[in-house]
Simulated scan of single mutants.
Amino acid sequence: MDDIDDSIKPERIVFVTVGTTCFDALVKVVDTPEVKRELFNKGYTQLLIQIGRGSYIPTKSSGEGVCLAVDYFTFSSSIADNLRSASLVISHAGSGSIFETLQLRKLLIVVVNEDLMDNHQSELAEELAERKHLFCASPQTLLHTIKALSLDTLAPYHPGDARPVAKLMNRFLGFLED
């Protein structure tokens, strides 16, 4: 009478996004057996990778046996559904991806693309990591960061209220206030 299969695990999705850029170093590192094994050991069941303009194509797998199910795509009109369904997001350091993920209160690892010149995005990622809202890594340190993941060390992100700044700017520019 007991038809429940105890081997079925709930879906726990890792969503990797590079935005509209080419960030093959990130895609390559999440495609390594070591990273996949560590994610699987942490209880994740699926790995969905958005590769953007990159040329590196990750290895797809169905997730049978002792491994993650892996799939990828280049672009989507919106990654909002992917972010919502994810248990863990591994993202490039684009501010849009970072803040959208934080507002959804998702576990976030931001991987800084060290190949970019004048990488101001790293400053944002490092500041938010220092404030304990996310984890920050490079492609070379991602595996270590995944191994060390601890939810206990993170603080929820609360977006600021921009209205006082907008009001001050409007007053400065001579616009009438409502």
Rank of each mutant, 00 (worst) to 15 (best):
T153R: 10
K28V: 00
N170V: 01
F99Q: 01
V14I: 04
A69M: 12
D118H: 12
C22L: 13
A155N: 05
I79P: 03
Q103K: 07
I51Q: 07
M1Q: 05
C22Q: 15
E114D: 10
C136L: 08
A137R: 03
E38G: 01
Q121M: 10
V30N: 04
L154W: 11
A69D: 09
L48R: 05
D118N: 12
L48K: 06
T45E: 09
H120S: 04
E34G: 03
N41S: 08
V30Q: 05
L68G: 00
M1G: 06
L102D: 10
S85R: 11
C22I: 05
T45G: 05
G96F: 14
T59A: 00
N41E: 12
E114G: 01
R171N: 07
S61N: 02
D118K: 04
E177Q: 11
P159Q: 05
A148C: 10
I98G: 00
L48M: 03
V35I: 12
S62M: 04
G43S: 06
D81P: 00
L102M: 08
K132P: 00
S87Y: 11
A80L: 12
L173C: 04
S62W: 06
F40A: 05
M169K: 04
S138E: 15
V110Y: 14
R12E: 11
I57Q: 05
L128N: 01
T59S: 05
L83M: 12
K42G: 01
Y44R: 00
E127V: 15
S150C: 04
V29C: 01
T20Y: 12
L124D: 03
A155L: 11
P58M: 14
D3M: 08
S7K: 06
T17R: 02
H133P: 00
G52F: 14
E34C: 01
A69T: 01
S91W: 05
Y56H: 14
H158T: 12
K106E: 12
D6R: 15
F73W: 14
H158Q: 13
I109L: 11
